[in-house]
Nucleic acid binder design. Structure first.
Length: 662
DNA sequence: CTTAGGG
DNA sequence: CCCTAAG
């Protein structure tokens, strides 16, 4: 992995005096912004965080907790695991190939996004293949198949999904055994009496306590930075590698399906209990609603039937452009609060279908159709975890993330021939879903339960909109959460482990600021738990022009607060020192191009607060303390650029200045 | 869309 | 962070 290290000289070049890298360039002269788009990703960087996580997850799911050996085994063990996992991948079937492809896909700088996918996939696969009970059960229920309604279908899926309830997992059931027991019957046998399925759920008996929900965001400085990892965000348009590495992908290309609220009462029966955990999950889902992770779906993933293909998918390449539309996108998202969590397709040409249905009974006579969920895909989940976290916490995070999604109130969307089947009361037959379709025309999608936003979800306009959009999308995103300050055990932060994790930090949309200076307290890292975030829809307006104006009011949730880390501050300072104030867009591009959640306005605001912070007494400052050194630089830069700005505006140039200029 | 500022 | 006026 070749990282371009930010040479300290770069900074020095500015000297304390801050020499503008280039005088303020007239807008007109800046040229096309699009030109600055980043280039290809740096190869070789892919196998990092993701592999590590995947390894752990895979191991965990495949063999249970014990497989990872002592939680404190550390990097070596992980390395071994990784190897092991890789081998398996090779021999696996189509799905696994797909999986592997994703893992190694250079294009996916956001490795973490795939993890859940794997986890989920494995969970499902596991259940599918190794639970004889499920199979027989499914077979036993072969009657009245054809008469089951779409709602029933959804219930069945729900039943499956609910097996992974937050309760079971968060209560410590994430141990190997527990996991195994959580994946019993994933094969859905659709029966009219959907509830039966639900009842199959066996209560888990765990004795572990739920992990503490820590608040989080205590992003301390990121310690242990390897030089390599240190590519600072301030790295100027460095060719690939650095800046280019984190081309944000999507986050905006969310295409999502709406939340068709199952009108059937049946659905209600399957709603998860409103336990504290659920509430939490829901809350998280809600709050993250807007910021949708761009489901890091790849072309293949996007290859839905043509019918489903929506314009939004084309945004994939909008790299740069995307940013510029970031703002508006957010707004649009606010309007649409429904997202499909998972997309699954059947019989995709490329064989990447995530879900498969096996249809039987070729004759109308036998009215049963056996559907088998081959696998689901979890588009994007970002996992942030400190290098010092233990493997155990990593497992927990991953599991929590997946669980949160599954247990957070999922709904199942049914797609037939690419079209969303929203009438829950229709029978499969009425919906035109016959055994002939099972393989190629039926699709399912897991969507966040939109109960938390009924008003929006049920808006008529939305529905009409949905009609057009069957694309399903992602979910997932991170949210700070548990922070186990006491990861005494082992830290994954060692060569092998460290790199990947660190990279993840940067690769993820969290910013990639790594300040060499912030290595003071290596233990302050915080662990962030995963939080699924339902995707929002970006095409709403375009697709539903008619009802555009008529939107329910309370749409926009305030973005979650994400305090700037010291590293970010340093990056910001660095950028401003070089670019000056007043060029926030450039600052953003230069130092926060990877941080999808930091808009130039945010940076501008942050600078504003920094200047203020630097002006007040340390005692009055709040939040994570910013090194005085940085604050000093803030003031210096602020002063310098203010002066520059004054000079450029000869309106009433001070005499002194005027003389100097002439 | 960007900036600049107030809220 | 949000919202807006301006450009």
């Amino acid at each position: 992995m070749v990282f371009q290290k930010r040479s300290s000289s770069e900074m020095e070049s500015c000297g304390g005096g801050q020499v503008a890298e280039m005088p303020r360039v007239p807008k007109s002269a800046r040229g096309k912004r699009s030109v600055r788009k980043k280039e290809a990703q740096n190869p070789g960087q892919t196998m990092c965080a993701f592999d590590l996580l995947a390894t752990v997850a895979g191991k965990l799911l495949d063999e249970g907790e014990g497989s990872l050996g002592n939680m404190s085994t550390g990097a070596p063990a992980l390395a071994a695991c990784a190897k092991d996992v890789r081998v398996k991948q090779e021999q696996c079937d189509e799905e696994m190939k797909h999986f592997k492809h994703e893992v190694t896909d250079q294009d996916s700088c956001n490795e973490s996004a795939i993890l859940p996918h794997i986890v989920f996939q494995r969970l499902v696969s596991h259940a599918r293949n190794e639970d004889p009970k499920a199979k027989s059960e499914a077979q036993d229920k072969e009657s009245s198949m054809i008469s089951c309604t779409k709602a029933d279908l959804g219930c069945n899926f729900r039943a499956i999904a609910d097996r992974w309830s937050p309760e079971s997992v968060e209560s410590g059931a994430f141990t190997g055994d527990a996991v195994a027991s959580l994946m019993p019957t994933a094969t859905a046998g659709f029966h009219k009496n959907a509830p039966d399925m639900y009842n199959l759920l066996d209560p888990m008996d765990v004795d572990v306590k739920p992990p503490p929900l820590v608040s989080s965001d205590s992003t301390g400085e990121m310690p242990l930075y390897d030089d390599k990892i240190r590519r600072s965000i301030s790295l100027p348009r460095g060719p690939k590698g650095v800046a280019g590495y984190a081309v944000d992908r999507d986050d905006d290309d969310d295409k999502s399906s709406g939340c068709t609220h199952p009108s059937t009462t049946t659905n209600r029966d399957f709603r998860p209990n409103c336990t504290a955990e659920h509430s939490r999950v829901r809350k998280l889902l809600t709050c993250k609603y807007r910021k949708v992770a761009p489901a890091r779906m790849h072309k293949s993933d996007l290859s839905y039937s043509d019918v489903e293909r929506k314009p939004s998918f084309r945004n994939k390449k909008m790299h740069y452009t995307r940013q510029r539309t970031q703002r508006s996108t957010f707004k649009r998202r606010k309007l649409f609060d429904r997202h499909s969590v998972l997309a699954s397709e059947f019989g995709r040409a490329n064989g990447k279908g995530n879900t498969k249905v096996t249809g039987r009974n070729s004759h109308a006579a036998s009215l049963e159709v056996k559907l088998r969920i081959k696998s689901f895909k979890v588009p994007e989940l970002l996992v942030e975890i400190p290098e010092s976290a233990t493997v155990g916490s990593l497992k927990k995070n991953v599991l929590e993330a997946v669980t949160a999604i599954l247990g957070g109130g999922l709904r199942i969307g049914v797609l037939h021939h690419g079209k969303r089947v929203r009438d829950d009361s229709k029978t499969l037959m009425q919906a035109g879903i016959g055994q002939d379709d099972m393989l190629d025309n039926l699709g399912f999608s897991l969507e966040p339960n939109c109960t938390h936003n009924p008003s929006q979800v049920q808006a008529p306009e939305d529905i009409s909109f949905l009609e057009t959009i069957d694309t399903t999308e992602p979910l997932a995103r991170i949210a700070p959460a548990d922070s186990s300050s006491k990861h005494g055990e082992v830290d994954v932060s060692q060569e092998l482990a460290l790199t990947p994790l660190a990279m993840n930090y940067q690769g993820s949309d969290h910013d990639s600021v790594h300040s060499p200076g912030g290595v003071s307290s290596p233990d302050k890292v915080s662990t962030r738990a995963l939080v699924p975030v339902p995707p929002a829809d970006a095409n709403a307006g375009a697709l539903v022009p008619v009802n555009k104006s008529k939107r329910s009011p309370e749409q926009g949730q305030r973005r979650i607060r994400r305090p700037f880390s010291v590293a970010e501050v340093e990056a910001l300072v660095l950028a401003v020192e070089k670019l000056g104030t007043g060029r926030w867009r450039d600052v953003k591009l230069r130092a926060f191009d990877n941080a999808k959640h930091r808009t130039y306005v945010d940076l501008k605001d942050k600078w504003k607060t920094l200047v203020h912070t630097a002006s007040i007494s340390p005692q009055q400052r709040r939040g994570e303390p910013v090194p005085q050194e940085l604050l000093d630089r803030v003031l210096a830069a602020q002063a310098y650029w203010s002066q520059q700005q004054a000079k450029l505006q000869p309106k009433t140039p001070p005499l002194a200045e005027a003389r100097l200029l002439t």
